[in-house]
């Protein structure tokens, strides 16, 4: 048991472990809607488009989290605006916004002499999370989870029957915008853990793993959060003992969990989804 406790003597490991669990769980719970509504592309795009916000905040000496939130929200509204009334297909609108914003971020970063300053943005640095950052992460996560709880009924209905939602006066566009805002906030928290490039793994992989095992939305959320938190812990321990990138280790733990469940499902004939 000593190997489990040893890393805990360092305060950065303790903070990192709490952050990994909080971030993993939030991404994974929201990720269930990302997977069920087929929003994987927008999730990936949002993560890349916060880059210019982060870079601008860094260059101006402002709060990175604030910069990322502004850029994420701008993307959410930009995509909605470009694709309104079907003037552009939504995936086209996402593609344009996503690449433009990412290029802007790279351009800003290239004005600084060293790219190294930005490696924690691109690849995450969960061990660099300060206690103050952790408090903000927990507050954002609680906000996202509270919104998902309060609007679960509307999110669920607009996911499978937007026509009925509109017919009873529930505007599906507003729900979609709301979900994109939550997604932007979640992506911003997740970037601390695994970085811009890998964040969509936390949104998609645990939720997809859970969807292989159960067919009820609340249970899917619970399982997804468990898979992601466990992967967060496993990844951090792996990075401590093997001295590898924590973000990559966390994502690979998620991938491994998915592959194990997927293989078990294919090999074991009696492995059925519970209702």
């Amino acid at each position: 048991m000593n190997w489990l406790l040893e890393p805990l003597q360092y305060s950065f490991m303790r903070t990192g472990l709490v952050a990994a669990v909080v971030i993993g769980a939030t991404c994974a719970v929201l990720g269930v809607y990302v997977v069920l509504r087929g929003m994987a592309f927008i999730g990936d795009a949002l993560s890349h488009t916060v880059l210019p916000g982060l870079a601008a905040a860094y260059l101006l000496g402002l709060n990175l989290l604030g910069g990322a939130i502004v850029a994420g929200l701008a993307t959410a509204f930009g995509v909605g605006w470009l694709s309104r009334r079907q003037s552009l297909r939504e995936d086209t609108a996402i593609g344009i916004t996503f690449t433009g914003m990412f290029a802007l971020g790279i351009l800003m970063m290239s004005t600084v002499s060293s790219f190294r300053d930005f490696s924690h943005i691109l690849f995450g640095n969960i061990l660099g999370v300060t206690p103050q950052n952790l408090a903000i992460l927990i507050a954002l996560s609680l906000f996202v989870l509270l919104c998902l709880l309060l609007f679960h009924k509307e999110l669920e209905l607009t996911s499978f029957d937007p026509t009925h939602a509109e017919a009873i006066g529930l505007k599906t566009d507003r729900i979609r915008y709301g979900l994109l805002i939550l997604l932007a906030l979640t992506v911003v928290t997740g970037i601390q853990a695994v970085g811009v490039v890998l964040i969509s793994a936390l949104l998609i992989t645990p939720a997809a793993t859970a969807s292989l095992v159960t067919r009820s939305v609340p249970r899917m959320m619970l399982l997804s959060a468990m898979f992601a938190s466990a992967s967060g812990l496993a990844g951090l321990y792996a990075s401590y003992y093997l001295n590898v990138s924590s973000g990559a280790a966390i994502v690979l733990s998620c991938t491994a969990a998915f592959l194990v469940v997927f293989a078990a499902k294919s090999i074991l004939p009696g492995f059925q989804k519970s209702a």
Binding site: E156, F160, D161, T163, H164, I168, S211, V217
Partner: peptide
């Protein structure tokens, strides 16, 4: 809105979504 009920063609609904029959019917109360 509650005075008018619209029964759409089946193709309007994403039947792959993991909802139970009871849940679908209960959305009529929303």
């Amino acid at each position: 809105h509650h005075r008018v009920a619209y029964l759409p063609q089946r193709s309007e609904i994403d039947w792959r979504f993991p909802a139970s029959l009871r849940k679908l019917v209960a959305t009529g109360r929303y």
